[in-house]
Simulated assay, not measured.
Amino acid sequence: MLAALLEARAGHALSPERMWRIETVLHPILRERGYPSLEALVVALASEADRNLVDQVVDALINHETYFFRDHAQFLDIERVALECLRERRTRHRTLSVWSVGCSTGQEPYSLAMALAERPEHWAGWDINILATDISPSVIRTARAGRYSHFEIQRGLPTRLMLRWFEPDGSDWLLRGDIRDRVRFAEHNLLSDTLPPGPFDLILCRNMLFYLTPEHRSRAVTRLAAALAPDGLFMLGAFETMLTQGAAFAPDPEARGFYRLSAAEARPQGRLQAR
């Protein structure tokens, strides 16, 4: 029941190695709602009488793992390879559009915003737009607030950047407004919602696709290809690959570790419509 619900709503596969998480992540809902057991919760879900309960359970089952500058070596590639490559390709117009897909509580797009803010002269005169989306309303609310616990701040964020871009607020840390304003957050289901206005010069879709079923993963890849600029760059997670995901993307010859649209996809007649 829970596996079918998660796949239907989010396209995620509840793999055997993730089964142990079910009772742990759903325990707060059992306590809050007064259900005596997981079985009682499943019975309530089957009736579909409480749509808020369904949303709450799906949200809890999705893995929202993230942290600042996640996979540090890979993030350095975003700064030193992708952004510099795109800077050369966009010198004439000086515009850059980035989409962070499956952004969770916002650490990835905010890390990017901080990295750009650290080099103000390098990006002076550029119009840079960062869109960050996630299927979960709760994590988008957290991301927009830019408020993080001390534990969240310590995960991946250098002390120098913490002191420069965050202010203490009680037991939490609040991101400065000028960094928050650099990122636009929105709820979005990659599998079903209309694609956001593009095309995007850089799409970050790290550590999300491998949670999807093969069928949904294929659809997601097709839609991501439709959103990427013909000479834009696409990045997966450190342990993900496009080798088994069809021919929409190919390794970019100038930006190692990144993908670009394949020759057929990059031609105007080969681009997919956002649907």
Rank of each mutant, 00 (worst) to 15 (best):
H216F: 04
V139N: 05
I153C: 11
L202W: 02
A13Y: 00
D181Q: 15
L157I: 10
A250S: 14
E88V: 10
S171Y: 00
L41N: 09
V139A: 13
L243D: 14
P168Y: 10
E39F: 00
C205F: 02
S262G: 15
P109L: 08
G156A: 12
V221E: 09
M19I: 06
A227P: 02
W165L: 08
I179P: 01
H93V: 14
V57W: 06
G106T: 05
G170K: 10
S97V: 02
V43G: 03
R144K: 14
I203Y: 02
S138Y: 06
C85F: 00
L195W: 02
L112N: 06
I140C: 07
P28K: 13
I29Y: 09
R31K: 15
S171L: 12
H122V: 05
E254P: 00
C85Y: 03
P158R: 12
A60M: 05
H27W: 06
W173P: 01
A40L: 07
D71A: 15
L61T: 09
A238H: 12
H64W: 04
H188A: 11
Q56G: 02
Q154T: 09
R256Q: 13
D59K: 03
W165G: 05
T244F: 11
V25P: 05
R260T: 15
R141V: 12
E254N: 12
R31V: 15
R70C: 11
M114P: 01
L5H: 06
W123R: 04
R223E: 08
R271T: 05
W173R: 04
D59G: 13
A229P: 02
D134M: 02
A143R: 01
A13C: 03
H122K: 12
Y67R: 09
E118G: 15
M114V: 12
S149A: 10
F210W: 13
G34V: 12
L236N: 10
G170A: 11
M242G: 04
I135W: 01
R94W: 03
V58L: 10
D231C: 10
H150M: 12
Q269Y: 01
R160K: 13
G177N: 12
T194E: 14
D172H: 14
W165S: 09
G246H: 04
V139D: 07
L157F: 03
P168C: 11
D71N: 15
V43P: 00
A248H: 14
L191C: 09
R94S: 12
N207C: 04
R87L: 07
L209D: 03
R260G: 15
D50C: 08
P168A: 13
W99L: 11
E79N: 07
H216T: 03
Y110Q: 04
R217W: 00
L45A: 11
G146R: 10
R256K: 11
M242F: 10
N207Q: 11
R219M: 08
R21S: 11
D71L: 08
F210P: 00
E79W: 00
L26F: 08
C205T: 06
F185N: 02
Q269T: 09
A238D: 10
